[in-house]
């Protein structure tokens, strides 16, 4: 057998030993629980909030059209980060709480969370969102999870 053939075989043998050692030491890791969207949240995202729906909720808010995609990307990103830090599932209340917190905390809408939620309720009804928005529930949710919500938004904003 030629020397180079022996060398090639040796490299492959060393490679296989390396793979076996990797498997022995680390084992096959399990994937983290996937961040899922609840059925209602997915429907809200796809049919009322996102680009397939023409960014309806944001369009009703009076926000300039040029920032719709970025605003949606931010809300989706923050919702998923929030879910990752809580129960791993994005629920509709997560999305709504993040939207209200963002617009009030960043000063895009004047007033309190209650005012922000009332405005969101108007925009949603203009888009015929079929899921009732209970502002008391949303504001309580924000107050309970404020720190995690802010962290999620900030991590998506890169702050």
């Amino acid at each position: 057998m030629r020397t180079w053939v022996k060398c090639v075989l040796l490299v492959y043998v060393i490679g296989f030993i390396g793979v076996a050692l990797t498997a022995y030491i680390f084992g096959i890791p399990e994937k983290p629980i996937p961040k899922g969207w609840s059925e209602v949240a997915s429907d809200y995202r796809d049919n009322y909030l996102g680009s397939p729906a023409g960014f309806c909720v944001f369009a009703k808010s009076g926000m300039p059209a040029s920032v719709y995609p970025k605003a949606v990307a931010l809300i989706l990103c923050a919702s998923e980060k929030f879910a990752n830090m809580t129960d791993n599932v994005v629920d509709l209340i997560d999305v709504r709480a993040i939207m209200v917190t963002y617009m009030i905390d960043k000063g895009y809408y004047p007033g309190t969370y209650v005012d922000g939620c009332a405005a969101l309720k108007n925009w949603e009804s203009a888009c015929n969102v079929p899921y009732e928005l209970n502002c008391t529930e949303v504001v309580n949710f924000i107050n309970e999870n404020h720190e995690v919500i802010v962290t999620s938004i900030d991590s998506c904003l890169g702050e």
Binding site: V19, F26, I28, P29
Partner: peptide, 27 residues
């Protein structure tokens, strides 16, 4: 020689890539 470098690299890259994406972590 040139050929042995192709013969060894192709299979080894396959092995490295499969191991890298299967044993995700420090490895």
């Amino acid at each position: 020689l040139r050929r042995p470098f192709f013969i060894v690299a192709g299979g080894m890259i396959t092995m490295c890539a499969i191991t890298a994406v299967t044993f995700v972590g420090p490895a």
